[in-house]
Design a protein around this nucleic acid. Structure first.
Lengths: 241, 241
DNA sequence: CATTCTTAATAGTCTGACATCTGACGTTCG
DNA sequence: CGAACGTCAGATGTCAGACTATTAAGAATG
């Protein structure tokens, strides 16, 4: 038994607790939450702290607050797991109820190109591990992946054994991947990749070229994923600003 | 002189004020903001209110807060105007410093398909205006658009004259488009559209199929935009959840 | 010189109070 | 009877001040 299980800030824990409670059906959609006074008592935090948590939840669209009325649980988003939610390819295949797999085409230590260096800046790098894989769902090839990882982050031997590069990288470095800047590009036909994915000539691919960063903004992984558009569909909630 | 200029909640005004100050260079990138105590004094609000504002700014990635150290202005938006920011095609072309234009191919009142009805649900519709246009930037064709608008929202005559369907629709209905659910799809070669956009056979297109909603969630416009991928680039900040 | 201690500054949290808004109910008056 | 108004309770919004936890940097120590 540790003295202190959770050293993170209180308001973050409160956010998670409330999200959990909504998830678990303790607070129902469209229903009013207990008043701030009651909630702060039952959560064991001050009203000020609770309010910071509720602000964020409101900002995230989880709840709606109305002055003089109360705080209400928003109906579930219809549009979850859009493209703005970052997930590993393994995770995406898992989520669709299929069995993820990998076929290694190559895994080499190569010299970083100028573009690589620019992308990974300000981290200095000379050699990078370049991994080419075909990702499969129920044995069928669906994604072609080119991943580049700075040499010092993970030994190349580990890379070869990994099924999910994502979690291997996280386990090994102890850092969690927090976000990725992703460029979206359509590919009509790719001389090399399309045949590998068993694509008909008219089957287009969607290329997501992503620079992954740790939660503290350290560049960790540059990957180019070519998705068969008939196997994956992406959507996004675009908001007017 | 009104009794009261701004009836919105204080913390919202504080957020805007701080954003303005950052915009205007009063607070510089990477620099530390004044302490919460000082800031609350200079803004004339309580520390609690200021903190709610700072929380949101942190959540939005505008600032970073470090316990015991201070609040810092984040270096800035490498990632602005990603795909999650909804903008009309006219707006996008404008933003890139080019002259937007439209070429009408057709504008007819047609019967809604079953799929249309499903998309626009729960609004009931029978006939919809279907508009096909080629959007140009500096006279060059860059986007092919198919827009569908429920008949009752806007007379078809108005549609034909409109350069920006987006703003015409907003002006006419008095409702502002708030967001759009967008499906992302790569198109390799389109028999009809590719030639219209003067595309080489290997030039892929990016199709954004969007259902636009007003701020109060009323479906207003269904549009399919085929972008020349060499003329537009989209990116998105994907966050781990 | 390296390590530890002290201290100042700052964000995090708590308490209790008052202000303002909303919705519901009851009263008044035409 | 019905519409307008008044009142009130309960909720979120805002405030002031105090205390805690964390960090960084300088001082003291070995």
């Amino acid at each position: 038994m540790s003295i202190r299980q959770d050293t993170r800030h209180l308001y973050l824990q409160v956010i998670e607790q409330i999200k959990r409670d909504i998830e678990n059906g303790i607070y129902l959609e469209k229903q009013k939450l207990p008043s701030e006074f009651q909630l702060s008592k039952s959560l064991g935090v001050s009203r000020a702290t609770l309010r910071e948590a509720l602000r964020i939840l409101e900002e995230d669209g989880v709840v709606t607050r109305r002055h003089g009325v109360g705080t209400f649980v928003n109906p579930k988003p219809l549009f979850t797991s859009g493209i703005e939610e970052l997930n590993s390819v393994t995770g995406m295949i898992n989520d669709s109820g299929m069995l993820p797999g990998s076929q290694y085409l190559s895994a080499d230590l190569v010299e970083a190109t100028e573009e690589d260096k620019k992308r990974f800046a300000p981290v200095e790098l000379h050699n990078i591990a370049k991994v080419e894989r075909v990702r499969t769902a129920d044995e069928q090839p669906v994604v072609f992946c080119v991943d580049k990882i700075p040499e010092h982050l993970i030994p190349i031997d580990h890379v070869r054994e990994a099924d999910s590069l994502f979690s291997t990288l996280e386990d090994y470095t102890g850092k969690r991947i927090g976000y990725a800047v992703t460029h979206i590009e359509p590919i009509g036909y790719h001389e090399r990749i399309s045949p590998i994915l068993n694509c008909e000539p008219d089957q287009a691919l969607l290329l997501l070229k992503q620079m992954h960063y740790s939660e503290d903004d350290v560049p960790m992984l540059l990957s180019s994923n070519y998705f068969r558009a008939d196997k994956f569909s992406f959507h996004v909630l675009r908001k007017r600003v």
